[in-house]
Amino acid sequence: MNPVKRWVNYSDQKGNAEIKVISFNTRAGRIGNKEVGPYLKSQDADVILLQEDAGIKYQFDGYQKANPGGGLTILTRHKIIKQQIIDPQDEEVRIPGVLADIEIKGKTYRFIDVYLNPFRFQKEMVKLNGDTDNDEQKIKDVVKRLIPTFKKHQDQVALIREVIDNSPYPVILTGDFNSVPNSYEYYHLSDGLDDAFLTAGKGSATSFHDYKFPIRIDYIFSSKSLKAISYEIDRSVSISDHYPVAVTFSTENK
């Protein structure tokens, strides 16, 4: 049942809400530029991890910012011990993520914000219209985009795995993976971690809403020493082509 539960799940978790985390691909504020900042501020989260935020300078009273590059930003009300780009050292591979080691209530956690290479599909590219020759060419064009992007993902995943495996602290991994559940990216990045949606999600996990069919490409994972007690995809706001994902964690051992 786990492959199905990665898309649709119903769970009931209890525990003390100690860390609230929000992951949100803001699409650089292109849809709701003026609304993104107030929305994020209103959530009163401990840590906010943003993707595709290049050129947008979100800053709130009481929050520190880790913004080492790559269009990724981490905001937190707590002390940042370290921040770092996950550097591919290869011009062909874009920066896949940034990390921030953050001290919360006397304990340090490694937060990793991920944005894997997009496939850059346009809606018309994946819309078949019944014209055999035209549809066949569309499929070929899609495959041409898939193969090189999958290769880049493989390289990016290896870099992210390294900072997960070498972390001296519990890990919270979030972001836009541009990959669906049951994919190579999902299995390799979640290895040894808990999918917060599997633990605490209710209903559909769909987070990307620009296409008419449901897609889950935004995730929050954590080390097993953390327990997700709530998981919310906030579909009340349409200020990006992604919905914000919010998870509260308990630090009580399972």
Rank of each mutant, 00 (worst) to 15 (best):
S11C: 09
S11H: 11
V21F: 07
S23R: 06
F24G: 00
N25K: 07
A28E: 10
N33I: 05
V36D: 00
Y39W: 15
S42G: 12
Q43I: 07
V47F: 12
D53R: 04
D53K: 03
D53H: 04
G55F: 11
G55N: 08
I56K: 15
G62T: 03
G62C: 03
Y63D: 08
Y63Q: 04
Q64D: 08
P68Q: 01
T73M: 10
T73H: 09
I74L: 10
L75H: 04
T76S: 11
I85Y: 01
D87H: 07
G97N: 02
I102D: 07
K105R: 12
K107Y: 15
L116F: 07
P118E: 10
F121L: 10
K127M: 08
N129R: 07
D131T: 06
Q154H: 05
A158L: 15
L159A: 14
I160N: 11
D165N: 13
I172A: 09
D176M: 03
N178L: 08
N178Y: 03
V180H: 11
S183Y: 15
D191V: 03
D194F: 13
L198P: 03
A200T: 02
G201V: 13
P214N: 03
P214W: 02
D218I: 04
Y219A: 01
Y219C: 01
I220D: 00
S223A: 05
I229N: 00
I233V: 14
R235A: 06
S236F: 01
H242G: 01
P244E: 00
P244A: 02
T248S: 13
K254R: 15
